[in-house]
Simulated scan of single mutants.
Amino acid sequence: MNQHRRSFIVRSFLFSMMGGSLIACKPSTSNTSIVPVEIDPRTTCDLDGMLLADYPGPKAQVFYVGNPTPRFFCDTVELLNTLLSPEQVQAVAAAFVQDMGKADWDQPRGNWIPVNTAYYVLGSKRHGSMGPTIASFSLEADAQKFIAQWNGKLMRYADIKPEMVDLSGGALHDTKM
């Protein structure tokens, strides 16, 4: 996919996150009222069917334009991969991650924040449902405290690149197979 198309998709996502819609390029006032939905014991991950309540680490959810029901992710890496994927063409109405400065790592509930306002910590020693994860925080101070304990690198949403959230795992890079 060329850089122009990727740039359009990223701009489209950011526009929709600010309350706009790509449908006929008209602003939508309904997007400002989207409220995150809390997970329950039956909530499953949209990508792999895992029960979110059974695993540690930050969770995520996305609302696509025209769909009032969110799609859930058992890990922030999965959401970020989906949003930054060149194949992502659905207009996003809202996306949320959990504030791990407030949520319990082992059983995170609530504390949802917009994906594009969060501070992210990549490369920490703390694992989520899928192993290494990206911790999300509403406050930079909480992210820095997490880094002091678990290591990692502080980033903002705009700085995260698709290759940083690759879901292919280590199998593609294992030369011993």
Rank of each mutant, 00 (worst) to 15 (best):
R5D: 14
S7W: 00
S7M: 06
M17G: 07
M18Q: 14
M18D: 11
G20M: 09
K26Y: 00
K26G: 00
P27T: 09
P27S: 06
N31E: 08
N31K: 11
I34Q: 04
V35G: 01
E38Q: 11
I39M: 08
T44F: 00
C45L: 08
C45Q: 11
D46A: 13
L47S: 09
L51G: 02
Y55C: 07
G57C: 05
V62N: 03
F63Y: 15
V65G: 00
P68N: 12
F72I: 03
F73W: 10
T76I: 06
L79I: 05
L79G: 01
L80A: 04
L80F: 13
S85Y: 01
P86C: 07
A95P: 02
A95D: 03
A95F: 03
V97W: 00
Q98K: 09
Q98T: 09
D99S: 04
G101T: 06
A103Y: 05
W105I: 06
P108Q: 04
R109V: 10
I113Q: 04
P114A: 07
P114T: 06
V121H: 01
V121W: 00
K125T: 15
S138C: 04
D142F: 02
D142E: 13
K145C: 04
Q149D: 13
Q149S: 14
N151I: 05
G152T: 10
K153N: 08
R156E: 12
Y157P: 04
A158Y: 10
A158V: 14
P162G: 03
V165C: 02
A171D: 11
L172T: 12
L172D: 12
L172I: 10
D174I: 06
K176W: 05
K176T: 14
